[in-house]
């Protein structure tokens, strides 16, 4: 059986290639959180308190546009809901652990850490006895991602303080979202969800409390579900859009 130490190091190693994509994202988050008007301390704290890339990008944007806190927290809930699937999927593997371990690993449960860890748990030939120290692998992957995310957002925040406001860096947030959404619109239900949500958001932008965002997002999700249900043929496998640390 592999030792905790070797499991931990394998977890770190499995995450290394993914870090190449995470570092620029963390830096972009840091730069544009400041561009959106967040104080450096708040922008930095968000990386450890929330520790979820997509929610942090969306949160920074909503704070910048003066959205009420309740709506921001609700939006965070919707954006991060997919983590519940990850939790449900790793839960059986963590049953034997002390609660402190489970609370720690839950904090480190991101798109990337989940992806490498569940692959490790599900390796062919895995038996309950061979998975006894695999939580160290999860910890290695999770901590590698966590420390990289903290460091890269800190670098981005430092760079952000050097940039004058006339550069309109707040626009990089919109551009980041465009870069993430457009390539993912490769089937009709997704495209329809995006278009309907966008159009509704423009039409109802004057609703009080910035509720237009929720109304628009729910409209898009319902349109997507409705079209998918009516589409002939098999469901497409879902490809989660990953921008989490």
């Amino acid at each position: 059986m592999p030792s905790p130490r070797s499991e931990f190091l394998s977890g770190v190693k499995a995450l290394l290639p993914i870090l190449l994509g995470v570092i620029p994202f963390g830096m972009i988050y840091g730069v544009l959180a400041l561009g959106a008007g967040l104080p450096a301390g708040v922008a930095l704290a968000m990386s450890s308190i929330v520790f979820a890339g997509s929610a942090q990008f969306v949160g920074a944007q909503l704070i910048a546009t003066g959205t009420p806190g309740v709506v921001i927290v609700l939006t965070t809930f919707i954006v991060n809901l997919r983590h519940m699937l990850y939790g449900a999927s790793v839960a059986p593997h963590l049953k034997h652990l002390h609660p402190l371990w489970r609370w720690l690993l839950a904090y480190l449960l991101t798109d990337e850490a989940y992806a490498v860890t569940i692959t490790h748990y599900n390796q062919p030939g895995a038996s309950p006895s061979s998975s006894a120290s695999k939580h160290w692998y999860f910890l290695g992957a999770g901590l590698a991602l966590w420390s990289t995310w903290q460091a890269s957002t800190a670098v981005g925040i430092f760079l952000g303080t050097q940039v004058p406001a006339s550069w309109a860096l707040d626009f990089t947030l919109t551009l980041t979202f465009i870069a993430l959404v457009v390539p993912a619109l490769n089937d009709r239900p997704s495209a329809a969800a995006a278009i309907s949500a966008g159009v509704v958001a423009v039409l109802v932008a004057d609703l009080p409390l910035k509720l237009g965002l929720m109304v628009a997002a729910l409209t898009g999700i319902l349109v997507g579900l409705w079209l998918e249900r009516n589409a002939s043929g098999a469901l497409r496998p879902s490809r989660p859009l990953s921008l989490d640390p």
Binding site: S54, V58, Q61, L62, T75, I78, V79, L81, R82, L85, T174, F177, I178, L180, V181, A184, L185, P189, S190, A191, A193, A194, I195, S196, A197, G198, V199, V200, A201, V202, A205, G212, L213, A216, A217, L218, T219, G220, I221, G224, L225, E228, L235, S238, R239, P240, L241
Partner: peptide
Amino acid sequence: RALRFVPPAVLSAIILP
């Protein structure tokens, strides 16, 4: 099934306005 429509819907509701 709804989860996969969350990113396009939420992000595009932020982008377009």
